[in-house]
């Protein structure tokens, strides 16, 4: 927003005379497309959201909404939907951790052990993107069907009992319409967003460093935690952010795989915006979610301290 952005300062008492004006403006012209893009796709929608979060809640779509600096919307929205908010962060958090553990093993295998299968494995990681997000999620509904063999198997090995004990299912005989199904859906759908950045940073790790760690008395496990893992931290940070942020705001998985007791904040926002047409609460809730996520990301990135890493 400041006038100096992107342009080198021009000395006013330059003895060589006045510089061509076009040259001075080049910097501005170059940032124009980016600035326009930002304005149209971020600034305006963001202001619109902010405005609607401060609408007078007595308004309606039919009678019109007026912005009255009604900050009470925030408290009302938070109070009413804190359950869904907390649940979203919780589900997204678990899904992110599972993605990290499973994705790390996968990315590690692709980066270091896959040999000539490397490219094929990478394609397989991306392959789910070739079909629609919605269709893939729906197909999990078939896989987890109450009468399907997956549930039968899970019952036979008492997985359903175990999940019930840890609270990831609500009854002991099914998988669909439980937190387990929602978290599984989130994990499945966002896994590539974890694997790809992890792979990218693991692939850059110099194998000689791992050898050096071994040479310096680090067992393979210690070498991993002292060298490989710290060096892959940029990938870990990128992967967890790319997984957690969309997962926390997701509503499709909860909608299709969950039940009424597993609704996430995305479902609430979607319902408020599209069926209840309560723009004030919907706007306030969206802003709350955004603030929580931005704050969490800032704390996380600062704690992880990735700026020192190569």
């Amino acid at each position: 927003m400041t006038s100096t952005a992107g342009v080198p300062p021009v000395s006013t008492n330059d003895a060589s005379g006045v510089k061509p004006r076009g040259r001075k403006l080049t910097g501005y012209w170059l940032i124009l497309p980016g600035a326009l893009w930002l304005l149209i796709f971020f600034v305006i929608p963001f202001y619109s959201l902010l405005a609607s979060s401060l609408f007078d809640p007595d308004g309606s779509v039919l009678t019109g909404y007026e912005m009255t600096w009604h900050f009470g919307n925030y408290w009302d929205a938070f109070d009413q939907y804190k359950g869904q908010l907390w649940r979203s962060l919780w589900y997204a958090g678990i899904a992110t951790i599972i993605c990290l553990v499973v994705g790390y093993v996968l990315a590690y295998a692709i980066a270091f052990k896959a040999g000539r299968w490397k490219n094929l494995m990478l394609v397989l990681v991306i392959a789910p993107f070739f079909t629609s997000f919605l269709l893939r999620t729906l197909s999990w509904k078939l896989i987890f069907a109450d009468d399907g063999w997956v549930v039968g198997f899970a019952q036979a090995v008492h997985l359903t009992d175990l999940l019930n004990i840890v609270g990831l299912t609500t009854t002991d005989d099914r998988l669909l319409a439980t937190p387990f199904a929602v978290i599984a859906g989130l994990t499945y759908n966002f896994m590539p967003f974890m694997v790809l950045p992890l792979y990218a940073s693991l692939e850059k790790v110099d194998l000689r460093l791992i050898e050096a760690a071994g040479d310096l008395y680090a067992s393979p496990a210690r070498g991993f935690f002292r060298v490989t893992f710290p060096l892959s931290l940029p990938g870990v940070v990128a992967g967890t952010l790319l997984t957690f942020i969309p997962a926390a705001g997701d509503y499709v998985n909860a909608q299709l795989l969950g039940s009424t007791n597993t609704k996430m904040i995305g479902n609430s926002i979607q319902s408020l915006f599209t069926t209840q047409l309560d723009y004030a609460t919907a706007g306030a809730l969206s802003v709350i979610l955004m603030v929580i996520i931005v704050a969490a990301v800032m704390i996380y990135v600062r704690t992880a301290g990735t700026e020192d890493l190569v």
Partner: peptide, 8 residues
């Protein structure tokens, strides 16, 4: 040969 110092 290339020292393999731990960059982090």
């Amino acid at each position: 040969q290339n020292y393999a110092l731990f960059p982090h």
